[in-house]
Computed example of a mutant assay.
Amino acid sequence: MLYTNGLLEGHDRTTGTGLGLLRRTLTAEPDLDPDATCGSLFQTVLPPHPSDDVALLVARTRLLDPENVAEWDVPFDPAAVAPLRAACAQRLRAWGLEDAVCTAKLIISELITNALRYGAPPLHIRLLRDRGLVFEVSDGSSTAPHMRRAATTDEGGRGLFLVAQFAQRWGTRYTPHGKVLWAETPLDGR
């Protein structure tokens, strides 16, 4: 939950008082969905005449069932790409996602190769099966990846461009020990 102090403070009310009211409201109804939580907080915590602007964002996270997650540690060695690509393809087939294998192998190869070329150990890959198929490759470097268009005579430089072409979405998430480069495709591999 994120909020501005305008939710808590008001005429004749301190931040501490508003925070106490916020805690009691959340404790009284802990299982509300995000919309209902917002409604409840606006009814009980929002001062009648706010003295400042108010912003409130409530989100609920959820865990994937462990059978929908596959992960491997990746040796920091280019020879590791082919066996990991095969292991990921095998897992996709086990999940019944045969149509996604071709696209997945390309994305996995490019993400791992990018991490080997520009990242640092340790490397790790995760596949997540949810509403879509998410590929995550983490490494120990915080160097920002960037997509570029390779010239026809260039030997490399097309990896992230290919990922962007085949994925619905892709991006980078930074961690305390490096970064995660991720891509998402539909479950059918289109």
Rank of each mutant, 00 (worst) to 15 (best):
R62F: 07
P47T: 04
G10T: 04
Y174W: 06
L160V: 07
S141G: 09
G10F: 11
E71H: 13
A70S: 09
E29G: 00
R13P: 02
R85I: 12
T143S: 10
N5K: 05
A82I: 06
T61M: 01
F166L: 15
I108L: 15
A87E: 15
W95T: 00
L84A: 03
P66F: 01
H49V: 08
V163I: 12
F166Q: 11
A167E: 08
R85D: 14
L46Y: 09
E184A: 14
G16S: 11
R62M: 01
A80L: 05
G119F: 13
C102G: 13
E184M: 15
I107E: 05
V134I: 13
T175Y: 04
A150G: 01
C38A: 08
R158F: 13
T172Y: 02
E9D: 00
Q165R: 11
A183Y: 11
F76C: 05
E9R: 08
A28D: 07
E155Q: 13
W95G: 08
V81G: 06
T143R: 12
G157V: 03
L8P: 01
H146A: 01
L187A: 08
R60Y: 02
E29L: 11
D99T: 14
T175K: 06
T143F: 05
I112M: 13
T152G: 03
A183G: 12
T103Y: 11
W72D: 13
P145S: 05
W182I: 08
G140S: 08
V81D: 12
R117M: 09
H146Q: 02
D33V: 00
V54S: 03
R190A: 02
R85W: 10
Q165Y: 00
L187N: 06
G96H: 10
W95H: 09
D31H: 08
D33A: 07
G132V: 04
D139Q: 11
L84P: 01
D52S: 03
S51H: 02
L187R: 12
R158H: 11
L106I: 14
L7S: 02
N68F: 10
D35W: 00
G16L: 09
L46F: 04
Y118P: 00
L133T: 01
Y118D: 03
W182P: 04
M147N: 03
P30D: 05
Q43R: 14
G10P: 07
D33L: 05
V180A: 12
L2E: 07
C38K: 00
T4C: 14
V69R: 08
E155Y: 15
A59F: 15
